[in-house]
Amino acid sequence: MIEIENLSKTFTLHNQGGAVLRVMEGAALRVAPGECVALTGASGAGKSTLMRMIYGNYRAASGRIRIGGLDIVQAAPREVIRLRRETLGYVSQFLRVLPRVPTLDVVAEPLRALGASQDAARDRAAELLKRLNIPAPLWQLSPTTFSGGEQQRVNIARGFAHPFPALLLDEPTASLDAANRAVVLSLIDEAKARGAAIIGIFHDEAARARVCDREIDVSAFAPKAAA
């Protein structure tokens, strides 16, 4: 489902004399449907950079990232927009929403974008918010005022609202208590069971061991020192 070959990444800092940072070279991995793969490596090793490239958020310098047959590196913006709407979900660490939009609608939004009716989308959103223990009286409020852990759970509910065939999870269990952490892990298990290909970053080792089938150490993709 997700295939990466010979991927490299550089950052050119034009406002610092055009310095070029080579941050990744020769990255390669494959994730099959129903498989969950963890990205590991020390802080700064490039886990988030790789994940952002897979989402099309960072531009690759060279190489290929194929998701469901589409090469993100070469794809036109509208193809990536469609891929993100239908195929590729992303649960980031930060919830970015329009102020004043009720939590229920924030979570329902990905389904609305796919053409679901307002009622159907809200029903699914309510089901997820309930499972993730967000109290119903909060559903009509904007999540911008919620605590960190609540925002994190809203973000997870939003990411799991549509059954994406491919999912990227950035620290989905960080800042959650044991009960909610268990809910998130079972959501991941269910996604795997329906055939989703998942790539995750988990600092929570126990969580990683429980849901991930393999680990990939991104330090192996660091550029060789002599260049």
Binding site: F11, T12, H14, R52, G56, N57, R59, P77, I81
Partner: peptide, 27 residues
């Protein structure tokens, strides 16, 4: 969804909005 950045009458960069904002290529 998409973004075009203009400077002095020219388009200096274009692409997906979050890509242009999070990983801008042009000086």
């Amino acid at each position: 969804d998409r973004l075009m950045v203009m400077k002095a009458g020219r388009v200096v960069e274009a692409g997906l909005t979050d890509q242009v904002l999070d990983d801008p290529q042009d000086a």
